[in-house]
Computed example of a mutant assay.
Amino acid sequence: MNLNFRSIVIAICLCKVLSYSLNGQTKPVEKQEQLITKNDKSTDWARIILSAAVGYPLSYGDTFLKTYSKKTSHHFNATFFLNPKYIFGYDFNIYKATTDDTTLTGNFDNATICHYYMNMGRQFTIHNFPLSFRSTLGAGWANYRNEFKGVNKLNFKDNGFSMSITGTLQYEFTRFLGIHINAQWIRDFLRIETNQEIQSFFDRANYVFLYAGITFSLR
């Protein structure tokens, strides 16, 4: 009887020791799994990025833009993520300009230029570092509103197809707020009718825009 009682006591003690041993092994594994999950950024990517920026337009080539004195440009963008890499979105920019030589541009002295784009591209990120780069190709519309603010005010519009290539470098201070710089190349294909001798001077417009601004990320 005593032998059976001792056997039962020994068995119970062995079960408790084994139980404590298993618990001691399980907790570090659970903590390690929690740490891995916390550090895993694969599910922590922005679904939408909204940005606003100011910059300056630079024109090049033998076009009517060389007669413009350009002013600050404003740029707005909404980017939507299909997954952590591939994106699409909408671009809008606007700037004003004055012309110093109305003999080349016609009877106006002020212009407001707007660009509207739908774009697609890709984002590149650095693992566990809040820096990213986005490259997009856009297609859209350019609108030129020309004004003459003399005694007899005149307003008329020119428009045409436009395409853009944009590169954006973004740094995130928090999961929701960041800053960015970008460079945007633009070519406008206009439909301005004029004398055949100077038609090529008005057929197209070439720009490079340089911007800096803030971003808001929605996850």
Score class of each variant (00 low, 15 high):
104 L>D: 08
155 N>M: 13
183 A>L: 15
106 G>F: 02
87 I>N: 04
204 R>H: 09
160 G>S: 05
162 S>H: 00
135 S>L: 11
113 I>N: 04
104 L>W: 08
67 T>R: 12
69 S>Q: 13
61 G>Q: 02
207 Y>M: 11
126 I>L: 12
134 R>I: 11
122 R>P: 02
201 F>S: 09
64 F>P: 06
29 V>K: 07
23 N>Y: 13
95 Y>W: 13
37 T>L: 15
37 T>A: 15
14 L>H: 08
203 D>I: 08
138 G>N: 09
126 I>T: 13
45 W>P: 00
210 L>R: 00
174 T>F: 05
163 M>T: 00
211 Y>S: 01
117 Y>E: 02
66 K>A: 02
183 A>E: 15
212 A>E: 08
38 K>N: 05
14 L>E: 05
38 K>M: 10
62 D>Q: 06
75 H>T: 05
149 K>E: 02
66 K>C: 00
59 S>W: 09
215 T>E: 04
168 T>E: 10
50 L>C: 13
142 A>C: 09
180 H>T: 04
200 S>D: 15
9 V>R: 07
100 D>P: 04
3 L>G: 06
71 K>L: 05
173 F>Q: 08
138 G>V: 01
33 E>L: 15
219 R>I: 09
25 Q>M: 02
185 W>F: 13
206 N>Q: 08
204 R>P: 01
105 T>E: 03
214 I>L: 14
80 F>V: 14
96 K>C: 01
79 T>S: 14
7 S>C: 04
82 L>Y: 03
34 Q>T: 00
126 I>H: 05
13 C>K: 02
73 S>P: 05
124 F>C: 12
81 F>V: 00
18 L>I: 10
99 T>S: 11
33 E>Q: 12
77 N>W: 04
219 R>C: 10
35 L>Q: 09
85 K>T: 03
170 Q>Y: 07
135 S>K: 09
34 Q>Y: 00
169 L>T: 15
181 I>H: 02
203 D>F: 08
179 I>P: 01
135 S>M: 11
140 G>K: 03
107 N>Y: 11
19 S>L: 04
183 A>H: 08
102 T>F: 04
169 L>A: 14
176 F>R: 07
105 T>C: 07
150 G>R: 02
109 D>V: 09
54 V>W: 11
203 D>N: 15
52 A>F: 10
129 F>N: 12
131 L>S: 13
147 E>P: 03
216 F>E: 01
59 S>T: 12
121 G>E: 00
144 Y>Q: 06
6 R>D: 05
183 A>D: 14
126 I>Q: 11
182 N>H: 14
176 F>C: 03
24 G>D: 15
51 S>W: 03
185 W>E: 05
22 L>V: 13
97 A>F: 04
11 A>C: 07
108 F>G: 13
188 D>T: 05
131 L>H: 09
57 P>L: 00
7 S>L: 12
215 T>P: 04
212 A>D: 10
12 I>E: 15
151 V>C: 06
